[in-house]
Design a protein around this nucleic acid. Structure first.
Length: 440
RNA sequence: GUGGGUGUGGCCUAAUGGUUAAGGCUCCAGGUUGUGGUCCCGGCGAUUGAGGGUUCGAAUCCCUUCACCCACCCCA
């Protein structure tokens, strides 16, 4: 393979558009979010599932909706060398359902409760909070049509945001019923909107043909005026659909989870039925949706499996991080070592590597400093490392089999210099650590 | 995909057609020979995103391109 000459000589190689590096200063925050996701999943007794990042293109084309934007223009697709048509996953509900079918999870106790955390890909124009490679945490509860499962999934999502410290969050919820309720509604909606066709925005005139439901959440002001008096889907729900929705909201009431019934939430993907919802920060604009979900009772059948209901959500980790950092709930910082080792001379070096390893064997993190740098320079490095103590091993310490300890982030009146026998070093460090906890 | 904005060393900023692109932070190193943090001093590091054009002369003006930001479409 040949590269363009100017690419090599002038242009700096950089991450692909819309994809980014997460550097150590941010990865600590990312880890915290990931740990919280894992913990919330655990307390609801959901199990982790890891599916391939690449799927057969049919997994998405058949379920997400052939003419949805996600499939039409946002999916990364390619043919592999064997001629298989594959796609980088743009979302995971379809993939998890594929796995559910493939592994016969129908024979497990139902519902099967699963969670995932991973990367997804959408070829879209990047902007704030929107990336071509994005990270999502998601939940799928498959195999029960019980409305209380919808509420459970919503409450899990709500708990996640609370655990992360995101409090000013709004939950909007709606029902789009089942297929038959929806087709009645679409008929009525189409009839109403056609009366105003000429007044609708350009985008909405197009949507009228492709996906009239999307006009409902148009941001165009004229559209919104027209929509105000449009038929509401909740009025078209069958008795059964309405009962389902009512039981979901009843559960939410019992759980003390506040929500707004929001007629404009219709969700973009074809597979949704019944309950649909979105969480977003209060007062946010633009790409603000933190996560959304819904029920998808026909999806598994659509994929060729047995008729099986399901419900789930996905939430965007980047959007969570943006909110957490904006509000100062977590800050960017790296984790400092416990101890910084300063080795002077070759004898000092040999002793230091041995002692450092001994500390590490006891779970104490150690950063090694040395490499022929001056004492001053090493002490500076020790201080900048954020370590709590520096341990100095020079000729003198080698001879007396001792270790000099310098407390860097000291409490008021403690002795900042001390010397201990090398065999007592672990204990001495432990003492200093526990004292600092007491002091704090 | 559509419309608008921005692009100066790793980071932040100055220089709004004229001498070797200035400063702060970071980093590295010294302040008399084994003790950091404050302070002082020194050093590394940019042909101004890239390519082309106008001009005696371009970071400054024009074109192209790339990236980022904002809004739309859509979505997390």
């Amino acid at each position: 393979m040949k590269f363009e000459k100017d690419t090599r000589e002038k242009n700096i190689l950089q991450a692909p558009r819309g994809m980014r590096d997460i550097l150590p200063s941010e990865s600590v925050a990312l880890s915290k979010v990931r740990d919280t996701c894992r913990e919330v999943a655990r307390i609801f007794d959901y199990r982790e599932i890891v599916t391939p990042i690449v799927e057969d293109i049919g997994v998405f084309a058949r379920t997400v909706g052939d003419d949805s934007d996600l499939v039409q223009k946002e999916m990364y697709t390619f043919d592999d060398r064997g001629g298989e048509q594959l796609a980088l996953r743009p979302e995971n509900t379809a993939g998890v359902c594929r796995a559910y079918i493939e592994h016969g999870m129908k024979s497990l106790p139902q519902p099967v409760r699963l969670w995932y955390f991973g990367s997804f890909f959408r070829y879209d124009r990047p902007q704030a909070g929107r990336y071509r490679q994005l990270t999502q945490f998601g939940i799928e509860a498959i195999g029960s049509e019980d409305p209380s499962l919808d509420a459970e999934v919503i409450s899990l999502q709500s708990k996640l945001y609370k655990s992360l410290g995101l409090n000013d969050i709004r939950l909007g919820i709606n029902s789009i019923g089942t297929q038959s309720s929806r087709s009645n509604f679409l008929l009525a909606l189409g009839g109403y909107l056609r009366k105003f066709e000429a007044e609708l925005s350009e985008d909405s005139q197009r949507r009228l043909k492709t996906n009239p439901m999307r006009i409902i959440d148009s941001k165009d002001l004229t559209d919104q005026e027209i929509i105000k008096d449009a038929p509401k889907i909740l009025d078209f729900l069958s008795e059964g659909d309405e009962a389902h929705f009512h039981r979901v909201t009843r559960d939410l009431d019992s759980l003390g989870i506040s929500y707004d019934i929001d007629h404009s939430i219709v969700r973009g993907l074809d597979y949704y039925t019944h309950t649909v919802w979105e969480f977003e920060p209060i007062g946010a604009s633009g790409q603000s949706t933190l996560g959304g979900g819904g029920r998808y009772d026909g999806l598994i059948e659509e994929l060729g499996g047995p008729s099986t209901p399901g419900v789930g959500f996905a939430t965007g980790i980047e959007r969570i991080l943006i909110n957490l950092l904006d509000k100062g709930i977590i800050d960017q910082q790296v984790i400092p070592p416990d101890v910084f080792f300063i080795a002077l001379g070759s004898e000092g070096h040999h002793t230091a590597v041995k002692l450092a390893m001994e500390l590490r064997d006891h779970g104490i993190s150690v950063k090694a400093g040395g490499g022929g740098r001056s004492m001053k320079s090493l002490m500076r490095a020790a201080n900048n490392s954020g370590a709590f103590v520096a341990v100095v091993i020079g000729d003198e310490e080698v001879t007396e089999q001792s270790a000099a300890i310098r407390i860097l982030r000291d409490s008021a009146d403690s002795d900042r210099n001390l010397k201990v026998p090398q065999e007592d070093l672990v204990t001495a460090i432990r003492d200093i650590q526990s004292q600092s906890v007491v002091d704090a």
